[in-house]
Design a protein around this nucleic acid. Structure first.
Length: 119
DNA sequence: TCCCTGACTGGTT
DNA sequence: AAACCAGCCAGGG
């Protein structure tokens, strides 16, 4: 492995900003990062399985653009993810989808920086 | 370095 | 709405 992965660490840092009760999609994390794609976010999360900081990163709050939980962890991980989100108060559709209009994480105008707070 | 893979996304049919 | 295809960038052998 690459030992220190700055890209991954930055992605983890962004994900750590997601509060309980909210979710974000891979593309959103990538967009906030501004230097990688949605796949890289998923790739980082996959690598998270090898990190000791996995307990410090709310990976469960990251879902796909359709509000669905992507398959991972041989399928078991997906199940666990849903369980944890349910514990956080996330509601699932009959088809197992999350309503982004309700649970979408909205960064507080300046996760990176703000220059339009003149109001 | 090249090729394949991967917890994704958007457009078309 | 579901299925299929192409684009995207990074990591390992």
């Amino acid at each position: 492995m690459a030992g220190r992965s700055t890209l991954y660490e930055e992605i983890y840092a962004i994900i750590r900003l997601i509060p309980a009760g909210k979710v974000a999609n891979y593309g959103q994390i990538a967009e906030i990062h501004g230097g990688c794609g949605a796949r890289q976010v998923g790739y980082a999360l996959n690598n998270l399985r090898n990190q000791d900081t996995i307990d410090e990163v709310p990976w469960q709050r990251v879902v796909n653009a359709r509000g669905e939980i992507s398959m991972h962890g041989a399928g078991a991980g997906s199940f666990i993810q849903r369980e944890i989100l349910a514990e956080e108060g996330i509601e699932f559709d009959m088809k197992g989808r999350i309503d982004f209009s309700i649970y979408r994480w909205v960064p507080e105008l300046g996760v990176r920086d703000d220059s339009a707070t003149s109001g």
